[in-house]
Write a protein that binds this DNA or RNA. Structure first.
Lengths: 210, 210
DNA sequence: AACTCATTGACCGGGGTGGTCTACGATGTT
DNA sequence: AACATCGTAGACCACCCCGGTCAATGAGTT
């Protein structure tokens, strides 16, 4: 399987240190350019150990993808309530969950956000499937069971969807830029949510029926 | 100055081939990782010539930045009409200019879009100044001389600005993804502009006063 | 023929690569 | 006390690519 029992027997803390070091290195450099030397250095372990725990660089990478997909799926996407037909409300709640999950798993999210842009992504079948499941779930969240009659009827609903999505995306990117470098666990999120809600209210005011 | 007369005496075509090869390599890899070997290979010149034209890698990089800043400034930003107080109309025209300029100078724009994200950007003073002028101009385009009374008065105007900007940004990114790999000079842009206008109309309908 | 100069690519020392292997100390077993 | 096992470290390997140099070449000019 490419990963040894030895690694899984390590105490939680050390496992985490190694995984985070690797996630960060791959996220910042992509697969080819990521350096195993850098990983062991920032994980604080000897070079030999990395190849004792994982058979080689590629297996480590695949393990990280599997690990990241699990977290994104079970700690983020599956937590989003897909039953609320009010699109903006759904997005609002999704934003909260995403933020919380991101703060708790920053390295994982950072990594996940980059590996799907990799040029050549020939994954083993099980990973490819997991990947597609995740995509399907993402699609459901955006499109499934949305009450389209809530939107104003003098404009194309699909285009309004896009604008709302772009606005959320834009806010998220802006926020990331603003918070860059800060410790995500010690931030006071109240003013952020307040501001976020104001944006959501404007979207409702402008795009929902009167 | 880091660049020899020899280079400037080259016929236009060859200069362009070299500059484009270099722009592409730096854009794709950043300064540190860009390979001069790759540049000469894809420019179709001998290794020695690159260091005959430009004294070294760093000088070449600075020359490219200077070159790119000029094009962005004089072929893009300065072409935008800053007098129209109608924000969305201004954005609409700016979008057209940007697209046209991008199609004609794809490598330059691609390069310009990445070098401002470089980690360590300690540029020589003249370049730094040019950079700031460009920023100032960009700021003017977005904020200067906009008639704020055209917007609905039941929502914060600055937030509406943001949403409009995010929408434009989103559309642009989407478009780039859709057109990726295609030859930008042979595309029929009519349906694209039509779609773009529809989005702009929705923004007007939703955010302007009745 | 002598000189100038644009051009090439083999070559240089240096540094980083993924991966291996030996040596070692701790722990447990006989 | 002798031996075996196992988690650990890091020196080491062959390889590859780097930015930059330089001797050789050939075309043009005087």
């Amino acid at each position: 399987m490419g990963i040894t029992q030895t690694f899984k027997n390590l105490d939680e803390n050390k496992q985490q240190r190694i995984l985070n070091a690797a996630l960060k290195e791959f996220a910042e450099n992509g697969y080819e350019r990521a350096s195993t030397n850098q990983i062991v250095k920032s994980a604080g372990i000897g070079k030999g150990m990395l190849f004792y725990y994982f058979t080689n660089k590629k297996e480590l990478y695949h393990y990280l993808i599997d690990y990241a997909l699990d977290i994104v799926m079970y700690k983020y996407l599956n937590m989003i309530d897909i039953d609320d037909p009010d699109m903006i409300e759904r997005m609002k709640k999704a934003g909260q969950i995403k933020m919380k999950c991101f703060a708790e798993n920053a390295e994982v999210f950072y990594f996940a956000g980059t590996f799907l842009l990799e040029d050549e992504l020939d994954l083993p079948l099980p990973l490819k499937r997991k990947f597609e499941e995740l995509y399907a779930r993402g699609h459901s969240i955006i499109y499934e069971n949305i009450d389209k009659t809530m939107f104003r009827d003098d404009a194309d609903v699909d285009k309004i969807f896009q604008i709302i999505r772009w606005s959320m995306e834009g806010y998220e990117n802006d926020l990331k830029k603003r918070l860059h470098g800060q410790n995500l666990t010690t931030i006071n999120y109240d003013p952020i949510w307040e501001e976020f809600y104001e944006y959501m209210d404007i979207l409702k005011l402008s795009f929902y029926r009167k």
